[in-house]
């Protein structure tokens, strides 16, 4: 109980409401769905009031007034004709919106591959030169149509970024596609919505909508090799990375380490979260995560290195990782 009490609020208190809700659309698709949602909520409330009003009338009104309702004709009108007409109109309207949601706008949208894994997100930009890779974070340019290519590396996950669009499942053996376009810049949160195992609750990510130039700069940075260590401590950290075998699972661009079992760490220092939305990224959280990952997020695939690494080595490693920006 204590364990998570300190773990969770760290980065998450910094968040604010409105960054993970369908009711504050930041994009075209979520906007269409939000309009439909308000129509459904309003219509539903009106029909609910009407039905309960009729029920109250049937129970409480004077007999000569309520008897009019006690007929087969009333049942047919209220129970068949009224819903049939209302629902036919709703069906036509909602199919129009469905059509608008799935029709592509651009011939060549920006493609982003997102691969769900227990319990994190691998994110790849196949159109960017020799490819850019990040994790638990999706960057996208404002105003441009994006096609998400959704797949899974293990079990079924589902990607939900409600301020931009509804959710779409990530199913082993399939690639699902979802098009969306963001219309304002900012940072919002998404989460896995298909139960995927022990830590399904802690599988979130951040999405960053940027001005096109800013986005291109970010993308270029993801493709570049990481800078050489700037301090003695960072250099020591890089050595520890190799000696402890981190590279077997985690790739770092421009080095010999190209493991793919865990998140790519090339730009870990600039990311918004650690552990799929769990913590902010800085030296302390990095060290804490490496040492005690199984206490922070029990059951995730990374073993804890708290016993394997000396304190100095751990801090040096964290310092080097923090420098990867």
């Amino acid at each position: 109980m204590i364990r998570l009490a300190w773990a969770l609020p760290a980065v998450l208190l910094a968040g604010c409401s409105g960054v993970q809700t369908p009711l504050e659309p930041w994009g075209v698709q979520a906007g269409l769905i939000a309009g439909l949602t308000w129509l459904l909520f309003g219509g539903g409330a009106a029909i609910f009031a009407l039905v309960l009003g009729l029920l109250a009338f049937a129970l409480l009104a004077p007999a000569r007034l309520r008897r009019v309702m006690g007929s087969r004709r009333f049942v047919l009108l209220g129970g068949v004709v009224f819903p049939a007409v209302t629902l036919a109109a709703l069906l036509a309207h909602s199919m129009g919106i469905s059509r608008a949601l799935v029709l592509p706008e651009e011939e060549a949208p920006l493609r982003i591959e997102v691969i769900g894994r227990q319990y994190w997100w691998e994110v790849r930009y196949p159109d960017a030169g020799d490819g850019a890779v990040t994790a638990n974070e999706i960057h996208l340019p404002v105003g441009r149509e994006v096609e998400l290519l959704l797949s899974s590396g293990d079990v079924i996950h589902s990607l939900w970024l409600p301020n931009l669009h509804g959710k779409m499942d990530m199913i082993p053996g399939r690639v699902n596609r979802m098009r969306l376009r963001a219309e304002r810049t900012g940072t919002m949160r998404g989460q896995c919505t298909e139960f995927c195992g022990l830590q399904h609750a802690l599988m979130a990510f951040w999405a960053v909508v940027q001005e096109p130039a800013e986005f291109e700069a970010w993308l270029a940075r993801q493709q570049a090799p990481v800078p050489a260590p700037a301090t003695e401590e960072q250099a020591r950290g890089m050595r520890v990375y190799g000696e402890a075998g981190c590279g077997a699972c985690h790739a770092v661009r421009g080095t010999e380490w190209q493991g793919r079992l865990g998140p790519d760490l090339s730009r870990i220092g600039s990311r918004l979260s650690l552990g799929a939305g769990l913590h902010e990224v800085h030296r302390a959280t990095l060290a804490g995560w490496i040492a005690g990952t199984q206490d922070l997020k029990p059951g995730n695939s990374m073993p804890a290195f708290g016993r394997a690494l000396a304190g100095e080595d751990l801090l040096a490693l964290a310092a080097w990782l923090e420098s990867l920006r």
């Binding site: 039905v51 049937a58 007999a63 309520r66 008897r67 007929s71 009333f74 129970g79 068949v80």
Partner: peptide, 19 residues
């Protein structure tokens, strides 16, 4: 939803027809 709605209205109508 139509058959369910129909039953709801049949129950309301039956209440309304109570002597």
């Amino acid at each position: 939803s139509i058959p369910s709605g129909l039953q709801v209205f049949a129950w309301i109508a039956t209440f309304a027809a109570a002597p």
